[in-house]
Lab assay of single mutants.
Amino acid sequence: MQGVVKVNSALNMRSGPGSNYGVIGTLRNNDKVEIIKEVDGAYEIRFNGKVGYASKSYITIVN
């Protein structure tokens, strides 16, 4: 499943599905991501070869 990031500035990509996990990357508006699955209000995603988590509130599914 594919998604597009929709933010005003940037969205943190984290090592786990919550803000208490470390930041492993930054997503920008209109970045395209692969959605692997939904976990606790976040999506597990793949972006630029990395797998991490981002809030589903800022990712629009575009299948």
Rank of each mutant, 00 (worst) to 15 (best):
M1V: 13
M1G: 07
M1A: 10
M1T: 11
M1W: 13
M1D: 05
Q2R: 12
Q2V: 14
Q2L: 14
Q2F: 15
Q2M: 15
Q2W: 15
G3L: 02
G3N: 01
G3R: 01
G3F: 03
G3A: 06
V4P: 01
V4E: 05
V4S: 04
V4F: 07
V4M: 09
V4K: 06
V4C: 10
V4R: 09
V5H: 01
V5P: 01
V5M: 02
V5I: 08
V5C: 05
V5L: 03
V5T: 02
K6T: 12
K6I: 11
K6N: 11
K6W: 04
K6L: 08
K6A: 08
K6M: 09
V7A: 12
V7S: 14
V7Q: 03
V7R: 06
V7W: 04
V7P: 03
V7K: 09
V7D: 03
V7F: 06
V7N: 07
N8Q: 12
N8V: 12
N8D: 14
N8A: 12
N8L: 11
S9T: 13
S9P: 06
S9Q: 12
A10Y: 15
A10L: 14
A10P: 13
L11Y: 03
L11M: 10
L11V: 15
L11R: 07
L11S: 04
L11F: 05
L11Q: 09
L11W: 00
N12Y: 13
N12C: 15
N12G: 11
N12F: 11
N12V: 15
M13V: 15
M13Y: 05
M13G: 02
M13D: 02
M13N: 02
M13S: 02
M13I: 15
M13L: 13
R14E: 03
R14C: 11
R14V: 08
R14N: 07
R14S: 06
R14G: 03
R14T: 13
R14W: 15
R14D: 03
R14M: 11
S15R: 07
S15C: 09
S15F: 05
S15Q: 07
S15H: 04
S15D: 11
S15M: 08
S15T: 09
G16M: 05
G16N: 06
G16V: 04
G16T: 06
G16W: 03
P17M: 07
P17C: 07
P17Y: 05
P17F: 05
P17N: 06
S19Q: 13
S19M: 13
S19D: 15
S19H: 13
S19V: 12
N20H: 14
N20M: 09
N20C: 13
N20I: 09
N20V: 06
N20Y: 09
N20T: 08
N20A: 10
Y21Q: 08
Y21W: 10
Y21H: 12
Y21D: 15
Y21F: 13
Y21I: 04
Y21C: 15
Y21N: 09
Y21E: 11
G22P: 15
G22E: 15
G22Q: 15
G22F: 11
G22W: 09
G22K: 14
G22L: 13
G22Y: 11
G22N: 14
V23I: 13
V23S: 08
V23R: 04
V23D: 04
V23L: 06
V23Y: 05
V23Q: 05
I24N: 04
I24K: 02
I24C: 05
I24W: 01
I24E: 03
I24M: 06
G25A: 15
G25R: 04
T26N: 06
T26H: 10
T26K: 12
T26V: 15
T26S: 09
T26C: 13
T26F: 10
T26A: 07
T26D: 04
L27Q: 01
L27C: 03
L27I: 05
L27F: 01
L27N: 00
L27A: 02
L27T: 01
L27Y: 00
L27H: 01
R28E: 09
R28M: 12
R28T: 09
R28K: 13
R28D: 06
R28P: 02
R28W: 08
N29S: 07
N29R: 07
N29D: 09
N29L: 08
N30M: 10
N30G: 15
N30Y: 08
N30T: 04
N30V: 02
D31Y: 04
D31Q: 07
D31L: 04
D31A: 07
D31T: 08
D31I: 03
D31V: 05
D31S: 06
D31G: 02
D31F: 04
K32C: 14
K32F: 12
K32M: 14
K32E: 10
V33M: 02
V33R: 00
V33T: 00
V33L: 04
V33P: 01
V33N: 00
V33D: 00
E34R: 06
E34G: 04
E34M: 11
E34W: 14
E34Y: 11
E34P: 01
I35V: 11
I35G: 00
I35C: 02
I35S: 00
I35D: 00
I35T: 01
I35W: 01
I35L: 03
I35H: 00
I36A: 02
I36D: 01
I36M: 10
I36T: 05
I36K: 02
I36E: 02
I36W: 03
I36Y: 05
I36H: 03
K37W: 06
K37T: 10
K37L: 08
K37E: 05
K37R: 15
K37Y: 05
K37G: 15
K37S: 14
E38K: 03
E38R: 03
E38S: 08
E38N: 03
E38M: 07
E38G: 04
E38P: 03
E38V: 09
V39A: 06
V39L: 11
V39I: 12
V39S: 05
V39W: 10
V39F: 09
V39K: 06
D40N: 13
D40E: 12
D40F: 10
D40Q: 09
D40L: 11
D40H: 09
D40T: 07
D40C: 12
G41Y: 08
G41E: 10
G41F: 08
G41M: 08
G41H: 08
G41Q: 09
A42M: 15
A42E: 14
A42D: 15
A42L: 15
A42R: 09
A42F: 15
A42V: 14
A42Q: 15
Y43F: 09
Y43V: 02
Y43D: 00
Y43E: 00
E44N: 06
E44M: 15
E44K: 12
E44Y: 12
I45E: 00
I45Y: 00
I45M: 03
I45F: 04
I45R: 00
R46T: 07
R46H: 08
R46M: 12
R46W: 11
F47C: 04
F47V: 09
F47E: 01
N48Q: 12
N48K: 12
N48C: 11
N48A: 10
N48Y: 05
N48G: 10
N48M: 12
G49A: 04
G49T: 04
G49C: 06
G49Y: 03
G49H: 05
G49F: 03
G49Q: 05
G49I: 02
G49R: 03
K50E: 10
K50H: 08
K50D: 07
K50P: 00
V51N: 07
V51C: 09
V51Y: 08
V51F: 08
G52R: 01
G52F: 03
G52L: 03
G52N: 01
G52W: 02
G52H: 02
Y53H: 02
Y53M: 02
Y53L: 03
Y53E: 02
Y53T: 02
Y53P: 01
A54G: 03
A54T: 08
A54V: 15
A54H: 01
A54R: 00
A54E: 01
S55F: 06
S55M: 08
S55R: 06
S55Y: 06
S55G: 10
S55V: 09
S55D: 15
S55N: 14
K56D: 04
K56L: 05
K56V: 10
K56A: 10
K56S: 10
K56I: 10
S57I: 14
S57P: 06
S57N: 13
S57V: 13
S57G: 11
S57H: 14
S57K: 15
S57F: 13
Y58W: 09
Y58P: 02
Y58S: 11
Y58C: 14
Y58R: 06
Y58A: 12
Y58Q: 08
I59L: 03
I59A: 00
I59D: 01
I59H: 00
I59N: 00
T60A: 11
T60L: 12
T60C: 14
T60R: 12
T60G: 06
T60V: 15
T60P: 03
I61H: 04
I61G: 03
I61S: 04
I61R: 06
V62R: 05
V62I: 14
V62P: 07
V62L: 13
N63C: 13
N63H: 13
N63W: 08
N63K: 12
N63L: 12
N63S: 13
N63P: 13
N63Y: 10
